[in-house]
Amino acid sequence: MRTLIFCLIALASLPLQAAPALQTGLNGTWWNPDQDGQGFVIHLIPDSNQVFVAWFTFAPEGGSQLWLTGSGTLDQQPIALELTLTRGGALNSSSAPPVNESWGSAELSFSSCTAGRFDYAGASSGTISLERLTPVVDCTEGAGR
């Protein structure tokens, strides 16, 4: 009986570890510290209920640089993102209009103001544990959905 009560108390305390509310305080640079030289810039945009993600990385087979952009809506966690590959442009010029093509999809979630997770599937698939790289400016833990 005592064990059961402890279990119930443990269950009841779970919401204390709830994900943070989706807020602009999560905006900034995120990375996996084991993967120096690549990462994400994440922007939650309450004005338009959108999420913008830029993923600065490399080709799955290595070698060339690769950047992908992700967009989704700010409704719930995990955030569903469509990943787009843009190619064929020229630096600071419209001489060669770049072309967008779908690269795949991803799910982004935050377990705290400094920890998150990115699951992606497309030309390559995997999971990346994320930590916030730049210091938190104004982010409130808890009260998530």
Binding site: Q35, G37, F58, G62, Q65, G126, I128
Partner: peptide, 16 residues
């Protein structure tokens, strides 16, 4: 800086 030499979602060393 322009990072080179990496692999997506891997810890290969990267030059900058």
């Amino acid at each position: 800086l322009s990072a080179t030499g990496g692999v997506m979602n891997a810890s290969n060393p990267v030059d900058k």
